[in-house]
Nucleic acid binder design. Structure first.
Lengths: 214, 214, 214, 214
DNA sequence: CATGAATGAGCATTCATTCAT
DNA sequence: TATGAATGAATGCTCATTCAT
């Protein structure tokens, strides 16, 4: 059950194919090594060997080992950002959008264990991450999108207006983290359908506007 | 509030006073270093320095750095094993015993962060741990005791008999882990009273035998 | 007061405008970097970056990093060679010419710290420098000119004829080096007027021909 | 003439033979390498190889490469400190003591080129040297001794009392540096007798008290 | 019971240099 | 004329571990 095969098979993944092959090979190498062990246990020698390049090349493309990690994180996030943008297209209703978003979020964790672990464990220990452009940009993009949908829900009466939208967002993100953390850390399978269903039921019960008639 | 001061003040802790002073000092040294940083970041030089002994002595008493960690883990577990044995003395009723056990388990995690982190994070990366006597022995002792109580509950009608006792045990242990993991990882405070109360309410509702009259 | 601004503003300096722009940019880049740090601390990456060219181009024009240094040295020396040729034009008397030469020599050190340091410190550690054309050619040009003037002085009775002209030259060059070395090494200001005045007074007293009547 | 063989043949040099052989070999190794090249050009690998030990051992005994350099410097200074203490014993008259001190100082530079270069060139680039105990201690020991003698000279009328003793000390130390710097840098021979004679004549003429009768 | 001395293997990182295009 | 891509060989430094005493 555990140790599910992940998704970075996408050699030709998200970045606009403009990078030199060496750089791509290095990033892919780290991605594949992250499947097996944590970042701290991976050496530059290993990265270079798996990538089939010299260690020196790593430092041509990345300031240091950590900058490489951030790049990998960024690539993963980029890849899913597009997915997120497409995902809520055509969905009517704020709650439905939220439901879809929650499902996708959990689905991403379910299918990309490396990304999940990176976000849950690795990145928190590096205080400089929070200054990195990757973080800033995710924060802006994803967090804002979430807030917009909540606002929309409040405006059109789907969501109660007596709770701060930011607090609602906090609860949603905390909830997602909560239902996935255990599984991510212990390499157990995540079932997006079930988890998102339960989570949404719980949260929506709290945030939905109770109209007089219903 | 988080980052609570821990409990390994017990210099003269559990082991039957039989160990030579050097060995004890080394184990205590690692314990105190584990309060500050994770095992991987602790060097043998540090351990020796804090213990006030030579590095070589570590290898007289322990096969390697990891064997020392297992010893420390064992000492902690020993220490709490006694506590567990005393704890349910005089308690009537399987559910009450379980309640006490859950509370104590969570309480241990709340008060010995080092042990909690060891169990949750450190030890899982060492596959050989599961072969170690420490693990085998804890598994037998603690797990068995739990099962005994569940069996007792089934026998005396407190607990429904249509669920496998082992499954019930699994749910209890998983539940405890579940409600503590997040806090342990992110160094947030754990409130044993609240957590065990909620957890027990949830679980007992499911496992309690619903007698006609009640 | 020390750390005087230097003179390699002469972008279009001595070389007969024949070099391709890339080559010129590389040499100028090294010159400007030498103002800030010593040769050993300058990397080819830096040189290329400041020059605005690729690292590879350096190796198109120069055998290696050191050959580039020799080229820079040569350019500086070229630049001052012209100055030396013009300088003694129109001056009457060997001693006056020598005085002018000494002043100019010191003046060059005072105003081009990079050149001074190159000559005093950098170049001596590279034994192959003494085989380089740059060295051979300077030796011939400048040293010979000096000797010619001394000879002229002896011939026309200004300078005593009982000391070998080469020894006199040696004393003059040694003296110049002597009065500048300390300042160059410790980055202290050099005062050409004062230093050359004192040096000439000292040396000329020794080499001047004492005629009966004077 | 240049490149005179130096004096660190003293394998069993100054330190109280209490150091382990590895540490001694490392220090001696650096000393011998400093005869050939400057500190910056010496690698830890070389030091270890010449010493016949592993690179790791260097870091057992010294914080880093620079700390090793300071240790070497300290050993040299220690060695000569004893010499200085004995040297002025039994000499009458402050000027005679100063003369002896100047001679010995120059003699040390003449016979230990490595030490001389260390002091003149290497150590100035490391700002942290001036915080090192080695520096503080030399400053105190040697500088103070010099000042004491000058004071003594002023008290007994040998030295004029209208110039600050510290200024006199400054002139003496600057003078010694002045007459040795060139030779040290260019690896030319130093003649202590001649240099100290000339230097003392020059300085003493200025600082000696001109009594009415003389 | 304890240690002083020593190290092999590895670490992230740097840099001058090469070569196909 | 110019460069993008790549690297071999170091560099200073760390650490768990061994062994004679």
């Amino acid at each position: 059950m555990a140790k599910s095969k992940n998704t970075n098979k996408s050699k030709s993944s998200s970045q606009a194919q403009s990078f030199p092959p060496g750089r791509i090979k290095i990033a892919e190498s780290l991605k594949s090594l992250l499947e097996e062990k944590e970042f701290g246990a991976i050496t530059t020698a290993e990265i270079a060997k798996v990538a089939g390049v010299s260690e020196a090349l790593i430092y041509k493309y990345f300031k240091d080992k950590r900058a490489l990690l951030y790049q990998v994180l960024k690539e993963y996030l980029d890849q899913y950002r597009m997915q997120f943008e497409l995902d809520i297209k055509g969905i009517k209703g704020a709650l439905n959008k939220l439901r879809k978003l929650v499902w996708t979020h959990i689905y991403v964790y379910a299918n990309n264990r490396v990304l999940a672990k990176l976000i849950f464990l690795e990145v928190r220990s590096f205080p400089d991450y929070y200054q990195s452009e990757t973080y800033q940009w995710v924060k802006k993009e994803y967090s804002k999108r979430l807030l917009d949908i909540i606002d929309e829900g409040i405006r059109n009466g789907e969501i109660r207006d007596d709770i701060s939208p930011k607090f609602i967002r906090q609860v949603i993100l905390g909830g997602i983290e909560h239902v996935c953390l255990r599984e991510v850390i212990f390499d157990q399978e995540i079932f997006p359908d079930e988890l998102s269903e339960n989570l949404c039921r719980l949260i929506f019960e709290g945030i939905e506007r109770k109209t007089a008639g219903s």
